[in-house]
Nucleic acid binder design. Structure first.
Length: 424
RNA sequence: GUGGGUGUAGCUGAGCGGUUAGAGCAGUGGACUGUGGAUCCACGGGUCGGGGGUUCAAGUCCCCUCACCCACCCCA
């Protein structure tokens, strides 16, 4: 037996149905804000990720699925989707538009040790908003992320938010942090001793008790922002507060991708990170190698974390409401043609009227079995022709809930069925 | 990548050195051959995750391996 690769999943009913409905709700919601869909390849040149998400991030440095194709091109399965979107808007000359609002939905791949909520092939949705560097764009992005979880799925969430500064103030802050932690080097955990040299900001994120205590008195990013960054962040906070978006200012929040600047945020439920994002004003410049310079902000959310959570919350029952089901059954070889004809006509009408019903065509030798099967399928109306009906050119229609049934002439079947559908 | 736990029928669980691996649910057939859901009866289904070892004897003990789960790490 060949089994699926580690960290991957098959999604079968009912989970496949839940996923479909959850993602449909999210995507149609995003379109209300004027976002348009974009699709990019699931593999790209390795360089795209190394130069954007950053060589110092674990995602790129340790977790990428890299491979050579038959001509020796260095490729990678995408570990995130922001860099590909940026690449795509540059390559397709969308860059001249004053603002660009895009959303995506697709798989990402990370070579990690799998657990619940964490798979090697995962599904992300997200938005990217290009063209506005003002806090109002950050606000819109956070508002959308908030409403996806709060309004659509009714989840209690926290928005953690921070500003990590810009290319002017961030290096200075980094130096301060380094200068602070170097004094405690021996007390830091082994990971943090390594981080101190690679990216000292990450120490702020450490869960080790000693490191946490040391971090308490470290220089706070909010106190080391330049005036512009400080103003940007305080304006954003003001707007969010005025709209009663429950934010938690978390000066220890540092995100794992190198391209962020200024605003970074995470959407959390209990301790689960549902989504993360922020501003990346230099990424377009970076990927276009200095040709274009466009500010941007966005976020990405994980579909699996959301659906796993919804399963626990029993929200899914709502998503799996039964459709109205009709079963058309032949009980005799001689009835097959008539039944098939009725079936195809009904299907034709349903398609034209866009009715939300489910229709099953079955064939049994014995009525008892046919009914048992219909029962398992949770059929609402059971319609059949057997020897008895054939004698008088009739068809029997049975309501499975009440058990009531009636015989009608075959030629009246379609209009009767349509009438039943209409009434339900 | 580090540490820990789990893996027995389609699903959920017993069994923890000793007959032919046991149960509930699900499935199939029948009681009931043109009327379902209920009940009763019968039946089918297992390389006990995989490989190796210890032993007269291994689902049970040991080693390796694979997968899943948990805590780190990291992150969606």
């Amino acid at each position: 037996m060949i089994e699926k690769p580690k960290g991957t999943n098959d999604y079968i009913y009912p989970e496949s149905q839940i996923r479909k409905q959850v993602i449909n709700q999210i995507l149609s919601f995003l379109e209300k804000f004027g976002y348009e869909p974009i699709e990019t390849p699931i593999f790209e040149n390795v360089e795209l990720f190394k130069r954007s998400a950053g060589i110092s991030s674990d995602i790129v440095a340790k977790e990428m699925y890299e491979f050579l194709d038959k001509k020796g091109r260095q490729l990678a399965l995408r570990p995130e989707i922001t860099a590909p979107v940026v690449r795509a808007i540059i390559q397709n000359n969308l860059i001249n538009q004053p603002i660009i609002k895009l959303y995506y939905f697709g798989n990402i791949f990370r070579y990690e040790k799998p657990q619940k909520d964490r798979y090697r092939q995962a599904t992300q949705f997200g938005i990217e908003f290009f063209g506005i560097d003002k806090p109002i764009a950050d606000f819109e992005t956070i508002l959308i992320a908030y409403n996806i979880y709060k309004t659509i799925f009714n989840l209690e969430i926290e928005i953690h938010i921070n500003s990590i500064g810009c290319k002017d103030c961030r290096p200075k802050y980094k130096n301060k942090i380094y200068g602070y932690f170097i004094n405690f080097k021996d007390k830091l955990c082994s990971d943090c001793q390594r981080r101190l040299e690679e990216n000292p900001l990450r120490i702020l994120d450490c869960k080790n008790t000693t490191c946490k205590e040391i971090s308490q008195d470290s220089p706070k990013s909010s106190e080391h922002l330049c005036l512009n960054c400080k103003e940007h962040f305080s304006k954003l906070s003001e707007i969010l507060n005025s709209q009663n978006i429950p934010i938690i200012q978390n000066s220890l929040l540092v995100r794992g991708l190198d391209y962020y600047n200024r605003t970074v945020f995470e959407v959390k439920h209990n301790n689960i990170d549902l989504a993360g994002g922020g501003r990346y004003d230099y990424l377009v410049n970076h990927i276009s190698q200095g040709k274009y310079d466009i500010p941007a902000v966005g976020f990405a959310g994980g579909l699996e974390r959301l659906t796993n959570l919804l399963k626990e919350k029993k929200y899914i029952n709502k998503l799996l409401e039964e459709k109205f089901k009709i079963n058309i059954v032949s009980l005799s070889e001689k009835a097959d043609k008539i039944i098939s004809n009725i079936y195809s006509k009904i299907i034709d009408k349903i398609i034209k009227k866009n009715q939300n019903i489910e229709i099953h065509l079955t064939k049994f030798d014995n009525l008892s079995k046919a009914l048992k099967t219909a029962n398992k399928l949770k059929i609402n109306y059971f319609i059949f022709i057997g020897e008895e009906e054939l004698k008088n050119d009739e068809i029997t229609i049975k309501n499975m809930e009440t058990g009531k049934q009636e015989k009608i002439k075959i030629e009246n079947t379609i209009s009767k069925i349509l009438q039943i559908i209409q009434n339900n």
